[in-house]
Amino acid sequence: MFYFLKKYKLIFIIVIAIILGNMFSKDIVTIFVEKELNFQLSHLLKDRNRAILNEDKASLKSYYDLNTTYGKWAYYHEIKKMKYLHNWSEKQGVTFTEINSDVDVKWIKGKYNGFMANLAVSTEYIYKYNIGSEKANSFRIGTYHSIYIKETDEGFVIAKEWYKDPFADSLNMEEVKSDEIRKYIESQKERDLEKISDRRKKAIEYADKYCGAAGVENRSYNKKYRNFNPLGGDCANFASQILHEGGKFKKTSSWNYSKGNGSRSWLNAQGFKEYMLYSGRASLVAYGDYNKVYKAAYKLLPGDFVAYEKKGKITHISVISGADSKGYSLVNCHNTDRYRVPWDLGWSNKGIKFYLVHVHF
Protein backbone atom coordinates (compact mmCIF):
# COMPACT_ATOMS: atom_id res chain seq x y z
CA MET A 1 0.00 0.00 0.00
CA PHE A 2 2.04 2.98 1.25
CA TYR A 3 5.43 1.42 0.54
CA PHE A 4 7.19 4.75 0.98
CA LEU A 5 5.34 5.60 4.19
CA LYS A 6 6.09 2.24 5.75
CA LYS A 7 9.77 2.58 4.94
CA TYR A 8 10.21 6.18 6.06
CA LYS A 9 8.35 7.01 9.26
CA LEU A 10 7.76 10.60 10.32
CA ILE A 11 10.22 10.23 13.18
CA PHE A 12 12.90 9.22 10.67
CA ILE A 13 12.22 12.33 8.61
CA ILE A 14 12.49 14.50 11.71
CA VAL A 15 15.79 12.87 12.76
CA ILE A 16 17.24 13.48 9.30
CA ALA A 17 16.01 17.07 9.47
CA ILE A 18 17.81 17.56 12.81
CA ILE A 19 21.03 16.17 11.36
CA LEU A 20 20.74 18.40 8.34
CA GLY A 21 19.92 21.31 10.60
CA ASN A 22 23.34 20.99 12.20
CA MET A 23 24.98 21.03 8.80
CA PHE A 24 22.90 23.42 6.73
CA SER A 25 20.51 26.33 7.06
CA LYS A 26 16.96 26.05 8.39
CA ASP A 27 15.64 26.85 4.91
CA ILE A 28 17.27 23.72 3.52
CA VAL A 29 15.80 21.64 6.35
CA THR A 30 12.34 23.06 5.69
CA ILE A 31 12.61 22.27 1.99
CA PHE A 32 13.72 18.71 2.74
CA VAL A 33 10.85 18.00 5.13
CA GLU A 34 8.23 19.61 2.89
CA LYS A 35 9.37 17.63 -0.14
CA GLU A 36 9.18 14.36 1.77
CA LEU A 37 5.71 15.07 3.15
CA ASN A 38 4.54 16.33 -0.24
CA PHE A 39 5.67 13.04 -1.75
CA GLN A 40 3.74 11.12 0.88
CA LEU A 41 0.57 13.12 0.28
CA SER A 42 0.81 12.51 -3.46
CA HIS A 43 1.13 8.76 -2.92
CA LEU A 44 -1.79 8.71 -0.49
CA LEU A 45 -4.08 10.46 -2.99
CA LYS A 46 -2.82 8.22 -5.80
CA ASP A 47 -3.69 5.09 -3.82
CA ARG A 48 -7.08 6.52 -2.82
CA ASN A 49 -7.88 7.36 -6.46
CA ARG A 50 -7.06 3.78 -7.44
CA ALA A 51 -9.42 2.45 -4.79
CA ILE A 52 -12.23 4.76 -5.97
CA LEU A 53 -11.62 3.77 -9.60
CA ASN A 54 -11.81 0.05 -8.78
CA GLU A 55 -14.63 0.37 -6.22
CA ASP A 56 -12.25 -1.21 -3.71
CA LYS A 57 -13.94 -0.42 -0.40
CA ALA A 58 -11.50 -2.49 1.64
CA SER A 59 -8.46 -0.58 0.38
CA LEU A 60 -10.25 2.75 0.74
CA LYS A 61 -11.08 1.94 4.35
CA SER A 62 -7.42 1.30 5.17
CA TYR A 63 -6.49 4.90 4.30
CA TYR A 64 -8.54 6.39 7.17
CA ASP A 65 -8.33 6.56 10.94
CA LEU A 66 -11.71 5.09 11.86
CA ASN A 67 -11.01 5.51 15.57
CA THR A 68 -11.87 9.20 15.30
CA THR A 69 -15.17 10.84 14.42
CA TYR A 70 -13.59 13.06 11.77
CA GLY A 71 -11.79 10.10 10.24
CA LYS A 72 -15.07 8.19 9.97
CA TRP A 73 -16.84 11.17 8.42
CA ALA A 74 -14.10 11.56 5.81
CA TYR A 75 -14.22 7.84 4.98
CA TYR A 76 -18.01 7.61 4.70
CA HIS A 77 -18.10 10.63 2.43
CA GLU A 78 -15.57 9.07 0.04
CA ILE A 79 -17.68 5.91 -0.03
CA LYS A 80 -20.70 8.01 -1.10
CA LYS A 81 -18.55 9.77 -3.68
CA MET A 82 -17.34 6.42 -5.04
CA LYS A 83 -20.92 5.18 -5.33
CA TYR A 84 -22.05 8.36 -7.09
CA LEU A 85 -19.23 8.26 -9.67
CA HIS A 86 -20.04 4.69 -10.59
CA ASN A 87 -23.80 5.37 -10.70
CA TRP A 88 -23.14 8.31 -12.99
CA SER A 89 -20.87 6.26 -15.25
CA GLU A 90 -23.61 3.61 -15.54
CA LYS A 91 -26.18 6.27 -16.47
CA GLN A 92 -23.73 7.75 -18.98
CA GLY A 93 -22.63 4.45 -20.52
CA VAL A 94 -18.96 5.11 -19.81
CA THR A 95 -16.08 3.48 -17.97
CA PHE A 96 -13.54 5.49 -16.01
CA THR A 97 -10.06 4.23 -16.90
CA GLU A 98 -7.85 6.56 -14.85
CA ILE A 99 -8.06 9.06 -12.00
CA ASN A 100 -4.91 11.13 -11.50
CA SER A 101 -4.28 13.95 -9.00
CA ASP A 102 -1.69 16.72 -9.09
CA VAL A 103 -1.03 18.11 -5.61
CA ASP A 104 0.03 21.67 -4.87
CA VAL A 105 0.87 22.03 -1.16
CA LYS A 106 0.05 25.55 0.04
CA TRP A 107 1.37 24.99 3.55
CA ILE A 108 2.31 22.09 5.74
CA LYS A 109 3.22 21.84 9.42
CA GLY A 110 3.93 19.12 11.95
CA LYS A 111 1.33 18.06 14.46
CA TYR A 112 1.31 15.42 17.20
CA ASN A 113 2.12 12.08 15.50
CA GLY A 114 1.37 13.50 12.07
CA PHE A 115 1.02 16.70 10.09
CA MET A 116 -1.56 19.20 8.85
CA ALA A 117 -1.59 20.43 5.29
CA ASN A 118 -3.53 22.77 3.04
CA LEU A 119 -3.66 21.61 -0.57
CA ALA A 120 -4.92 22.55 -4.00
CA VAL A 121 -5.61 19.34 -5.92
CA SER A 122 -6.23 19.09 -9.66
CA THR A 123 -7.76 15.68 -10.43
CA GLU A 124 -8.02 14.36 -13.97
CA TYR A 125 -10.71 11.81 -14.78
CA ILE A 126 -10.34 9.81 -18.00
CA TYR A 127 -13.28 7.87 -19.43
CA LYS A 128 -14.41 6.04 -22.56
CA TYR A 129 -17.87 5.28 -23.86
CA ASN A 130 -18.70 1.58 -23.76
CA ILE A 131 -20.47 1.62 -27.14
CA GLY A 132 -19.74 3.48 -30.36
CA SER A 133 -16.60 5.44 -29.50
CA GLU A 134 -13.07 4.34 -28.64
CA LYS A 135 -11.86 7.88 -28.02
CA ALA A 136 -10.62 8.69 -24.52
CA ASN A 137 -12.25 11.74 -22.91
CA SER A 138 -10.86 13.63 -19.95
CA PHE A 139 -11.88 16.40 -17.59
CA ARG A 140 -10.37 18.06 -14.53
CA ILE A 141 -11.82 19.09 -11.19
CA GLY A 142 -9.93 21.37 -8.79
CA THR A 143 -10.49 21.12 -5.04
CA TYR A 144 -8.97 22.80 -1.99
CA HIS A 145 -8.26 20.53 0.97
CA SER A 146 -7.51 20.93 4.65
CA ILE A 147 -6.16 17.55 5.77
CA TYR A 148 -4.68 15.96 8.89
CA ILE A 149 -2.46 12.94 8.25
CA LYS A 150 -1.76 10.73 11.26
CA GLU A 151 1.01 8.16 11.68
CA THR A 152 0.12 4.60 12.74
CA ASP A 153 2.00 1.30 12.87
CA GLU A 154 0.71 0.58 9.35
CA GLY A 155 1.75 3.93 7.89
CA PHE A 156 -0.02 7.26 7.50
CA VAL A 157 -3.81 7.53 7.45
CA ILE A 158 -6.30 10.38 7.08
CA ALA A 159 -7.61 11.45 10.49
CA LYS A 160 -9.47 14.52 9.23
CA GLU A 161 -10.20 16.05 5.84
CA TRP A 162 -12.35 18.90 4.61
CA TYR A 163 -12.90 20.07 1.05
CA LYS A 164 -15.80 21.39 -0.98
CA ASP A 165 -16.94 18.24 -2.73
CA PRO A 166 -18.02 18.85 -6.36
CA PHE A 167 -20.42 15.91 -6.08
CA ALA A 168 -22.02 16.87 -2.76
CA ASP A 169 -25.24 18.13 -4.37
CA SER A 170 -25.93 14.89 -6.22
CA LEU A 171 -24.97 11.86 -4.15
CA ASN A 172 -28.38 10.27 -4.76
CA MET A 173 -29.21 9.21 -8.33
CA GLU A 174 -32.00 6.71 -7.68
CA GLU A 175 -34.56 8.82 -9.55
CA VAL A 176 -32.56 9.05 -12.79
CA LYS A 177 -33.84 6.71 -15.53
CA SER A 178 -30.42 5.28 -16.36
CA ASP A 179 -31.31 2.71 -19.06
CA GLU A 180 -33.36 5.09 -21.19
CA ILE A 181 -30.82 7.90 -20.84
CA ARG A 182 -27.83 5.68 -21.55
CA LYS A 183 -29.36 4.39 -24.79
CA TYR A 184 -30.02 7.93 -25.97
CA ILE A 185 -26.48 9.10 -25.14
CA GLU A 186 -24.98 6.06 -26.87
CA SER A 187 -26.91 6.93 -30.05
CA GLN A 188 -25.30 10.37 -30.31
CA LYS A 189 -22.28 11.37 -32.40
CA GLU A 190 -19.35 13.71 -31.89
CA ARG A 191 -20.21 17.33 -32.66
CA ASP A 192 -18.16 19.68 -34.84
CA LEU A 193 -17.78 22.91 -32.86
CA GLU A 194 -15.08 24.49 -35.03
CA LYS A 195 -17.59 26.70 -36.85
CA ILE A 196 -18.71 28.64 -33.79
CA SER A 197 -18.13 32.40 -33.83
CA ASP A 198 -14.80 33.97 -32.90
CA ARG A 199 -16.41 35.61 -29.88
CA ARG A 200 -17.50 32.22 -28.58
CA LYS A 201 -14.01 30.83 -29.17
CA LYS A 202 -12.42 33.73 -27.28
CA ALA A 203 -14.86 33.27 -24.42
CA ILE A 204 -13.79 29.64 -24.05
CA GLU A 205 -10.11 30.52 -24.29
CA TYR A 206 -10.68 32.74 -21.25
CA ALA A 207 -12.73 30.04 -19.49
CA ASP A 208 -9.95 27.51 -19.99
CA LYS A 209 -7.17 29.87 -18.91
CA TYR A 210 -8.74 31.02 -15.64
CA CYS A 211 -10.65 27.98 -14.38
CA GLY A 212 -8.45 27.85 -11.27
CA ALA A 213 -7.18 24.68 -9.62
CA ALA A 214 -8.69 22.55 -12.40
CA GLY A 215 -6.54 24.23 -15.07
CA VAL A 216 -4.13 22.39 -17.34
CA GLU A 217 -1.36 25.01 -17.35
CA ASN A 218 -2.48 28.08 -15.41
CA ARG A 219 -4.12 27.20 -12.08
CA SER A 220 -4.97 30.61 -10.73
CA TYR A 221 -7.88 33.01 -11.14
CA ASN A 222 -7.51 36.27 -13.04
CA LYS A 223 -6.01 38.58 -10.42
CA LYS A 224 -7.71 41.52 -12.09
CA TYR A 225 -10.88 40.34 -10.36
CA ARG A 226 -11.63 39.67 -6.72
CA ASN A 227 -12.12 36.06 -5.65
CA PHE A 228 -15.59 35.83 -4.07
CA ASN A 229 -15.37 32.19 -2.95
CA PRO A 230 -14.82 33.22 0.71
CA LEU A 231 -18.01 35.32 0.49
CA GLY A 232 -20.27 32.56 -0.81
CA GLY A 233 -19.10 31.68 -4.31
CA ASP A 234 -17.34 32.88 -7.44
CA CYS A 235 -19.29 31.04 -10.16
CA ALA A 236 -21.35 33.99 -11.45
CA ASN A 237 -18.35 36.31 -11.21
CA PHE A 238 -16.39 33.89 -13.42
CA ALA A 239 -19.29 33.48 -15.89
CA SER A 240 -19.53 37.27 -16.16
CA GLN A 241 -15.78 37.51 -16.76
CA ILE A 242 -16.00 34.89 -19.52
CA LEU A 243 -18.69 36.85 -21.34
CA HIS A 244 -17.06 40.27 -20.81
CA GLU A 245 -13.33 39.56 -21.11
CA GLY A 246 -13.57 36.71 -23.61
CA GLY A 247 -16.90 37.21 -25.36
CA LYS A 248 -16.62 41.03 -25.47
CA PHE A 249 -20.04 41.71 -23.96
CA LYS A 250 -20.07 45.32 -22.79
CA LYS A 251 -20.84 46.17 -19.20
CA THR A 252 -24.09 47.95 -18.43
CA SER A 253 -25.40 49.95 -15.50
CA SER A 254 -26.99 46.78 -14.04
CA TRP A 255 -24.33 44.24 -15.10
CA ASN A 256 -21.10 45.76 -13.95
CA TYR A 257 -17.83 45.21 -12.07
CA SER A 258 -15.54 47.97 -10.81
CA LYS A 259 -12.93 48.51 -8.09
CA GLY A 260 -13.17 45.06 -6.54
CA ASN A 261 -16.94 44.77 -6.45
CA GLY A 262 -19.79 43.97 -8.78
CA SER A 263 -23.52 44.31 -9.21
CA ARG A 264 -25.96 41.59 -8.19
CA SER A 265 -26.36 40.47 -11.81
CA TRP A 266 -22.57 40.18 -12.12
CA LEU A 267 -21.87 38.32 -8.88
CA ASN A 268 -25.02 36.45 -7.84
CA ALA A 269 -26.04 33.22 -9.61
CA GLN A 270 -29.77 34.03 -9.44
CA GLY A 271 -29.14 37.62 -10.50
CA PHE A 272 -26.90 36.57 -13.39
CA LYS A 273 -29.47 34.15 -14.80
CA GLU A 274 -32.29 36.68 -14.49
CA TYR A 275 -30.27 39.49 -16.08
CA MET A 276 -29.15 37.43 -19.07
CA LEU A 277 -32.69 36.23 -19.83
CA TYR A 278 -34.60 39.45 -19.13
CA SER A 279 -32.10 41.74 -20.86
CA GLY A 280 -32.43 39.82 -24.12
CA ARG A 281 -28.76 38.84 -24.13
CA ALA A 282 -29.81 35.20 -23.78
CA SER A 283 -32.81 32.95 -24.25
CA LEU A 284 -34.08 29.82 -22.51
CA VAL A 285 -33.51 26.49 -24.27
CA ALA A 286 -35.05 24.23 -21.62
CA TYR A 287 -35.96 24.09 -17.92
CA GLY A 288 -36.63 21.16 -15.61
CA ASP A 289 -35.05 18.16 -13.92
CA TYR A 290 -32.40 16.07 -15.64
CA ASN A 291 -34.84 13.59 -17.17
CA LYS A 292 -36.65 16.48 -18.83
CA VAL A 293 -33.72 18.51 -20.21
CA TYR A 294 -30.84 16.15 -21.01
CA LYS A 295 -31.77 15.85 -24.71
CA ALA A 296 -31.97 19.63 -25.08
CA ALA A 297 -28.44 19.97 -23.64
CA TYR A 298 -27.04 18.81 -27.00
CA LYS A 299 -28.23 22.12 -28.47
CA LEU A 300 -25.93 24.15 -26.22
CA LEU A 301 -22.81 25.73 -27.72
CA PRO A 302 -19.56 26.90 -26.12
CA GLY A 303 -20.31 30.20 -24.39
CA ASP A 304 -23.88 29.23 -23.43
CA PHE A 305 -24.52 28.42 -19.78
CA VAL A 306 -26.35 26.18 -17.33
CA ALA A 307 -27.99 27.52 -14.17
CA TYR A 308 -28.54 24.95 -11.41
CA GLU A 309 -31.60 25.31 -9.19
CA LYS A 310 -31.91 23.74 -5.75
CA LYS A 311 -35.04 24.20 -3.63
CA GLY A 312 -36.28 26.95 -5.92
CA LYS A 313 -33.05 28.98 -5.87
CA ILE A 314 -30.24 29.23 -8.42
CA THR A 315 -27.14 28.11 -6.54
CA HIS A 316 -24.62 27.68 -9.36
CA ILE A 317 -23.65 28.80 -12.87
CA SER A 318 -21.37 26.97 -15.29
CA VAL A 319 -20.40 27.87 -18.86
CA ILE A 320 -20.42 25.42 -21.77
CA SER A 321 -16.81 24.94 -22.91
CA GLY A 322 -16.99 22.04 -25.37
CA ALA A 323 -18.36 18.55 -26.01
CA ASP A 324 -16.97 15.04 -25.63
CA SER A 325 -16.75 12.18 -28.16
CA LYS A 326 -20.52 11.61 -27.98
CA GLY A 327 -21.37 15.29 -28.27
CA TYR A 328 -22.18 15.56 -24.55
CA SER A 329 -21.83 19.17 -23.38
CA LEU A 330 -18.92 20.03 -21.07
CA VAL A 331 -18.59 23.00 -18.72
CA ASN A 332 -16.04 25.21 -16.96
CA CYS A 333 -16.75 27.02 -13.70
CA HIS A 334 -15.48 28.18 -10.33
CA ASN A 335 -16.49 26.91 -6.91
CA THR A 336 -15.66 24.10 -7.35
CA ASP A 337 -13.22 24.63 -10.18
CA ARG A 338 -14.05 22.61 -13.30
CA TYR A 339 -12.34 22.19 -16.66
CA ARG A 340 -14.31 20.52 -19.48
CA VAL A 341 -16.53 18.52 -17.10
CA PRO A 342 -19.80 16.84 -18.24
CA TRP A 343 -22.45 19.46 -17.52
CA ASP A 344 -24.57 17.36 -15.11
CA LEU A 345 -21.76 15.59 -13.22
CA GLY A 346 -22.35 16.39 -9.56
CA TRP A 347 -25.88 17.67 -10.15
CA SER A 348 -27.97 14.96 -11.83
CA ASN A 349 -30.54 13.95 -9.24
CA LYS A 350 -34.26 14.61 -8.83
CA GLY A 351 -33.77 17.49 -6.39
CA ILE A 352 -31.90 19.62 -8.94
CA LYS A 353 -33.49 21.53 -11.81
CA PHE A 354 -31.65 23.10 -14.71
CA TYR A 355 -31.94 26.22 -16.82
CA LEU A 356 -30.23 25.59 -20.16
CA VAL A 357 -29.53 29.02 -21.59
CA HIS A 358 -28.40 30.09 -25.08
CA VAL A 359 -26.33 33.30 -25.09
CA HIS A 360 -26.72 35.69 -28.03
CA PHE A 361 -23.15 36.49 -29.07
Results as ranks from 00 to 15, higher is better:
residue 1 M to G: 15
residue 3 Y to G: 08
residue 3 Y to K: 14
residue 9 K to S: 15
residue 14 I to Q: 09
residue 20 L to Q: 06
residue 22 N to Q: 11
residue 28 I to A: 10
residue 30 T to I: 13
residue 30 T to D: 07
residue 34 E to L: 00
residue 37 L to C: 10
residue 38 N to I: 02
residue 38 N to C: 07
residue 41 L to K: 03
residue 41 L to Y: 03
residue 43 H to L: 14
residue 47 D to A: 08
residue 48 R to N: 01
residue 49 N to Y: 09
residue 51 A to W: 01
residue 54 N to P: 00
residue 55 E to H: 01
residue 64 Y to W: 09
residue 65 D to M: 01
residue 68 T to Y: 03
residue 75 Y to Q: 00
residue 77 H to I: 04
residue 79 I to H: 05
residue 80 K to N: 13
residue 88 W to T: 10
residue 89 S to W: 02
residue 93 G to L: 08
residue 96 F to W: 07
residue 96 F to P: 05
residue 96 F to A: 08
residue 98 E to T: 13
residue 101 S to C: 06
residue 107 W to N: 15
residue 108 I to M: 13
residue 108 I to R: 00
residue 112 Y to L: 14
residue 115 F to H: 09
residue 116 M to L: 13
residue 120 A to C: 07
residue 127 Y to K: 06
residue 131 I to W: 00
residue 133 S to N: 11
residue 133 S to I: 07
residue 134 E to N: 15
residue 134 E to D: 15
residue 139 F to C: 15
residue 142 G to P: 09
residue 143 T to N: 05
residue 145 H to D: 15
residue 146 S to P: 00
residue 146 S to I: 03
residue 147 I to M: 10
residue 149 I to M: 15
residue 149 I to N: 08
residue 149 I to T: 12
residue 150 K to R: 14
residue 154 E to C: 04
residue 155 G to C: 04
residue 155 G to S: 10
residue 162 W to E: 07
residue 164 K to D: 13
residue 166 P to Y: 08
residue 173 M to T: 14
residue 174 E to Y: 11
residue 175 E to A: 14
residue 178 S to I: 06
residue 180 E to D: 10
residue 180 E to S: 14
residue 184 Y to Q: 01
residue 188 Q to W: 04
residue 192 D to L: 05
residue 194 E to D: 12
residue 206 Y to Q: 04
residue 209 K to S: 02
residue 212 G to F: 04
residue 220 S to D: 11
residue 229 N to A: 15
residue 230 P to T: 10
residue 230 P to H: 12
residue 232 G to R: 07
residue 232 G to E: 14
residue 234 D to R: 00
residue 235 C to M: 02
residue 238 F to E: 11
residue 238 F to H: 07
residue 239 A to W: 09
residue 243 L to G: 07
residue 252 T to V: 04
residue 257 Y to R: 12
residue 260 G to V: 01
residue 266 W to M: 08
residue 269 A to C: 09
residue 272 F to E: 02
residue 278 Y to W: 02
residue 287 Y to D: 01
residue 290 Y to W: 00
residue 291 N to L: 01
residue 295 K to D: 03
residue 296 A to R: 10
residue 297 A to C: 12
residue 298 Y to D: 05
residue 301 L to E: 12
residue 306 V to P: 08
residue 306 V to M: 13
residue 310 K to Q: 09
residue 311 K to N: 15
residue 316 H to Q: 08
residue 321 S to Q: 09
residue 334 H to G: 12
residue 338 R to W: 00
residue 338 R to F: 07
residue 339 Y to K: 11
residue 342 P to R: 07
residue 343 W to F: 15
residue 347 W to L: 09
residue 350 K to F: 03
residue 355 Y to F: 12
residue 357 V to Y: 10
residue 357 V to A: 11
residue 359 V to R: 03
residue 361 F to R: 06
